[in-house]
């Protein structure tokens, strides 16, 4: 095993292109568990901690550019006004220690169905910026998430940023777990009532192979909880049952609609 620590994004991209099987590591909250529990032994780990270009966020013409290295603590602290559902989701991620270290880019890279940042970003129709030898490309988050723990990132690419044009819609995030802190979502939901565009958008987590976006016109709010629950394709696993997950989504959607209508 080897660790490469680039100091710039260009260097990171070059190293990534040269070592196709390298595992990028940023906050380490996923990768380190794999290493500590002896579940994986990547040949090379690409440490992105020193790449300043990946950090923080910036506003560009009404769009927010969230660096892949943006931590959950930063989301909580800085984005409560502009992306409230994301900030709420960040508060539910692990513990303060995890929020200090874990990043948006990590959530995208792992592409877990339970990734807490994913539903709020889906609801805000985020786009993912990827960089590789051929240059930059962006694609909608919906297209980026292709399967359980699978994403559209090419072997020689890095996740650089997430672009969001904040909708200003009332929105919220909720996460169900059998404990009142530090849980992996049994089911989660982000929902926005976008009056400007006349639609409701919801995205669920932990209730299908990937977090998924569901839309409906504003006037179809009554049937929306059922619609979200039916869109999901949950499974039974060690954390919960499929039946419970579907039920929970129905309850969460109804509550979220009420919250965002108020």
């Amino acid at each position: 095993m080897d660790v490469l620590t680039p100091r710039t994004l260009d260097e990171a991209l070059r190293l990534r292109a040269e070592t196709a099987d390298a595992w990028p590591i940023q906050g380490g909250t996923d990768v380190m568990v794999e290493l500590n529990f002896d579940r994986a032994r990547p040949r090379v780990v690409l440490n992105l901690n020193e790449v300043a270009e990946l950090r923080g966020f910036a506003r560009e013409n009404g769009t927010l550019r969230l660096g892949a290295g943006l931590t959950y603590t930063e989301c909580r602290r800085e984005l409560g006004e502009t992306l409230p559902a994301l900030a709420e989701a960040a508060r539910t991620v692990g513990s303060p220690q995890i929020q200090n270290r874990g990043t948006i880019g990590g959530n995208l890279g792992t592409a877990s169905p339970a990734g807490d940042a994913l539903p709020p970003l889906l609801v805000e129709e985020a786009e993912v910026e990827l960089a590789g030898p051929a240059g930059r490309r962006t694609l909608p988050l919906e297209e980026f998430l292709v399967g359980p723990k699978q994403n559209a990132l090419a072997e020689d690419e890095l996740i650089v940023a997430v672009h969001v044009r904040p909708s200003g819609a009332r929105q919220t995030f909720m996460k169900v777990g059998p404990r009142n802190a530090m849980v992996i979502a049994v089911a989660s939901l982000a929902l926005a009532v976008d009056r400007e565009r006349g639609e409701i958008r919801a995205a669920y987590g932990s209730a299908g192979p990937v977090p998924r976006l569901v839309r409906a016109p504003l006037d179809e709010a009554d049937g929306f909880p059922d619609r979200v629950a039916e869109a999901a394709s949950p499974i039974d696993d060690v954390r919960g049952t499929a039946a419970y997950r579907r039920h929970a989504l129905r309850v969460l959607t109804a509550r979220a609609l009420e919250r965002c209508a108020a």
Partner: peptide, 16 residues
């Protein structure tokens, strides 16, 4: 929400 069922998961404001 910390003082409601579900805690930091933010699932209820008192509903249910």
């Amino acid at each position: 929400s910390l003082r409601l069922p579900g805690g930091s998961g933010n699932v209820t404001r008192g509903e249910g």
